[in-house]
Amino acid sequence: MSLVEAAEAAGAAPRVAAGPDRATVSGFLALFRSELLLTFRRVRTMALLGALAALPVLIGVVVKIETGGLHGGGDGGPPFLAQVTQNGVFLTFTSLAVALPIFLPMTVGVVAGDAVAGEATSGTLRYLLVAPAGRIRLLAAKFTAALAFCAAATLAVALTGLITGSVLFPVGKVVLLSGDTVSLGESLLRMVLIAAVVAVSLSGLVAIGLFISTLTSSGIAAMAGTVGLVVIVQVLDTIPQLAAIQPWLFTHYWLTFADLLRHPVYWDGVLHDLGLQALYVAVFGAAAWARFSSRDITA
């Protein structure tokens, strides 16, 4: 054993014994767990998830009732709707495509916007900070909990879509956008991938919502601000004169999740989307930190 290694071993031993890293990690986990419980135990969160889960059921039942009228109508209506009657798996894709522009960001906006401002409104923020948790850790825990909600919300739509689709319609091999047919197993794999991409697509919005949430002490204002921003950005995304800035809007690549339904898979749009979300998380996460760590907490 060389001297250096010995020194390293000697240096490492007390650090492990003292375990400051462990304390930080377990402290964060405890905080995250409490935030997670706080988020998911709320009646409001359950209601949001329930509303999201009702969407595929609604679409499925309507399609089932109106099946006769839908045959031959290729254009108009949500995407993939024509395929739903032939293959229930497509109900998941239809539901995600319908939910992603409005319903999903709305619920995420409510949860993320409420994260800090809601605590301030109810007067619990200062007590949270009295505990030796630290503001950064609290912010990180809130962000992670909101991301968990994104995943739960996406799963709620995808799973009820899959269940409703397979109950109401025949299920079989899936026809991809490029006309190729893949097995049910592969299509389920792609569905999982799509759900993951959709959930991660919402992370930029979570960061924005968290930042807005640190700006105000009113939970309602933060939620309305975040949801309003989603609407404004989507409107901007449709104005052709703004083509230059549109690739930088966080909603711009949302629907690229459908690129995973091509053969071969077209990754460009999805990678753009993920990169853009990472950029938004970095910028607005830093902004939330800058605001929250220097803000005076009076509530």
Binding site: G74, S178, A258, D259
Partner: peptide, 27 residues
């Protein structure tokens, strides 16, 4: 392959035959 939002349009030419495929209308 014309890559569209949530849809695709394909022209495939192979030897003496060719296909045109529109995913939106499934035609």
């Amino acid at each position: 392959s014309l890559v569209e939002d949530l849809a695709e349009y394909d022209l495939i030419h192979n030897g003496d035959q060719a296909w045109a495929w529109d995913s939106g209308s499934q035609q």
